[in-house]
Every structure is written in C-alpha cells, then in structure tokens.
Design a protein around this nucleic acid. Structure first.
Lengths: 196, 196
DNA sequence: ATATTTTTATAGTCATTACTACAAAAGTCC
DNA sequence: GGACTTTTGTAGTAATGACTATAAAAATAT
C-alpha cells in the first residue's frame, strides 16, 4: 500500500521525494555518480523516468539534492569538532578519527560521498561536489589560521590529503581498525607540526 | 608520410603499436579509463576501430598494455629508493617526495595513473590497476617488515594513504610546492613512528 | 602474373545512456 | 457533475558506447 502525498490539486504523487532522495543517496554513495543510471534510480524507487524528471529536473538536479542531504545528515560535524577551547592538533586529530569512523561505518556506502563525487566525469556533478569540499576545507583552514596562521595552509593541505586517502582506503575495503591506525600516525605529525 | 612497419607478408600496418600505446597512455592518464572512448583513441591515432581491435583485442587489452608501459617507464622507482643501507623512515620519505614530483610533473597527466585506474567502473580495468597497486604496496610492506616487522602494516597503510591523497590533490591542481610540503609533514610522522 | 596473407576502410550492430511527447488517470475546486 | 490541474504510464527519441562483418587494398611468395 503506497503512501500518497498531496501537493494541492491534481493527481497525487505515488512517491515521497524525500524518500526518493534518500534512496538515490544510497545508490550514489555506493556506486558513484557516473556508475548510477537514471534507470537504476527509477527501478529502485518503482517509478517511471518522467516522474523523476518532473520532481528533480535531471540527474544532476537529483544529485544536488542528494549532496545537500548528505551534507546535513552524514557529513563530519566540523563545527562541533573544531573547538576554540582545545589544542588545534587535538581537534584535527578528532576530525581524522571521525573521518575514519564515518568512511568505514557501512561497507556498501564506504568513503566520503563528497570526496568521491569530486572525481565524477560529469561536469555538473563534479562542480557540485567540489563546492562542498572547498567549503569544508575552508572551514578547516580558517580554524587553523585563527591560532596558527603560518601553518594554516600546509596543515590544512595535509589534513585534506589524509581524508582523501582515508576515503580511498575505505572504498578499497580497509577495515576500521586500520583506518584508525592511519589517522593516529597522521595525528602524531599534526601534534609535532603545531607544537603539542 | 606514414612510416610503415613490416610484419612479414600481407598488407603492412599504417601505425606503430608502441606509439599507439604511448598515445593511449597520455589519454588514459589525462582523462581516466572510463572517460576515454575507443573513438577518442582511434581519432588520436588516425586509425579505424578494426585496426585497434586487431592489435589489442579490446579496450581493456589496450589499457593493460598502457599500464605495463607506465609501470616500466613512469612509475616511482621503489627498487632504487627502498635502500637497505639507509634508515627506513628516510627512504619512505624519499618515496613520498618522489611521488609528489611525479604526480605534479605534467599538469595534463597529473596524479598516478595506477591509483586513479583502481577507481574505474570497468571491472577489467580496475582489476588490472589494483594488481599493480597491490604489488607496489607489497614491496613497501616487505621492505618495512625486514627492519620493523611490528610497524610494517600500519606504516605501509599510512604511506599508501598519503600517496593516494597526493595523487588526488595533484589531479585537483595542487602545485608541486604544496605537495612537497604535505609529503614533508607525513615524513615527520614516519620518523617518529619508526624512530629516527 | 597469380595466389596468399594481412591490414585496411566502410558501414554497420546492438546495448545503454539521459531525457521526453503524449494521452489517460486521478485527484481538487466550483 | 464538469472544468481544471497535476502526475502517471507508455513508448518513444537521439546520442554514444564498445565492438564487428565484409570486402577491397597492399604487401609477399612462387
């Protein structure tokens, strides 16, 4: 029995767009933007292509919605982790640890959906993912700069590199313990670079 | 005027397979396996599809030849860098530095072709790239294990993570100086983890 | 010269892609 | 109940993907 959502007059939708975005998110995260066809999504939702295009415009439009959802529900909570009352190196270490945990949490949706999305061959999808990644990197850089302006660039580059590497390793099937060990070694370097 | 290579009797080839592999390597390295179509390759070579299929079997067959060529001419010379007469941390640092230099050497073919190839959506291409990557990682692990058996796994994981991250950053357009700075910070962690 | 061999160019096949025209269906509003 | 609105299902389109059947071309062997 399908739940019908009313949008005023007219024939009611047979699907909930929010749920559709959630389903699409699983597919895009699991397989990547390029590897997921519109047919994959419509099949998973049990709807026909026109319904999806009416709701989201096109494949990239759906992906944009998915990225927003990911960013507000599955992303690493940088705002909470980057604390002004704790050592910078310690907070960055917690970001890396949290990254390892997120990326290995579910083996079918391993890695970071945004970081993986920046490698798409579709320009629209790639740009959308790159924008989110740039925003996250800016946030880290600003945080480091507020306390260690000289080191902000290189430390941020290093953290971003580790996160990209962790996402890759997670998609390669590396288990949580090994990802955490990698994050630990990286955190030693951060402590040394920022003074502990 | 085209150079014709004789292969015994029969109509001569209009193209040199070695040169074809070199041209295909540029394309695959620049755009990735999935984004390069067979038509892209045949257009670049000025030949027709049947000629390419006669010489290489299929797209994945051509890619296998390209990977071999890359591995024997463009790869990081691990065998020379991993020296038994130098501190392990120092040698691994030189591997990371060399990686940074290789990945940023040419902006149109940035990053590591093997590491990027492991992300292909084509199973054959991905498996071929993964095999080479696994071999390189084994070489590093064996080297570390010969001197620091307890640390071999985590240190190798860390080095592999940094290399994957550096390749990503290089493809993102990061310049050589910043890649080298990242490699430097990572090397500090290696020195600490392995005892300097 | 003629037969044989190998590669070529032409012109396709077939599957899959993102996306859509159109009319029937299924509601709401008066 | 009838006009109106919105979504649905059917059945496409056009482009592009990897790959190939076929016969002519261009060489060598005898």
């Amino acid at each position: 029995m399908t739940i019908k959502i009313s949008r005023g007059r007219g024939r009611p939708r047979r699907f909930d767009p929010e749920q559709a975005v959630a389903t699409a998110q699983r597919l895009f995260h699991a397989q990547g933007y390029d590897a997921v066809s519109v047919a994959d999504v419509t099949d998973a939702l049990g709807i026909n292509p026109p319904s999806l295009y009416a709701a989201f415009g096109n494949k990239a439009g759906l992906y944009a919605r998915v990225l927003n959802r990911y960013n507000s529900t599955n992303a690493i909570p940088l705002r909470d982790l980057l604390r002004p009352d704790r050592p910078v190196a310690e907070c960055l270490a917690s970001v890396l640890e949290e990254a390892a945990r997120h990326y290995a949490a579910d083996p079918v949706t391993s890695g970071c959906m945004v970081l993986e999305g920046t490698r798409s061959n579709d320009a629209d999808a790639r740009d959308a993912a790159c924008a989110l990644q740039a925003a996250a990197e800016s946030m880290i850089r600003n945080y480091v700069a507020s306390r260690h302006p000289e080191e902000a660039e290189r430390v941020t580059d290093f953290v971003a590199t580790i996160m990209a590497g962790l996402s890759t390793k997670a998609r390669n099937g590396q288990d949580l313990d090994r990802l955490l060990a990698i994050a630990d070694i990286a955190s030693m370097a951060l402590a040394e670079a920022l003074g502990d």
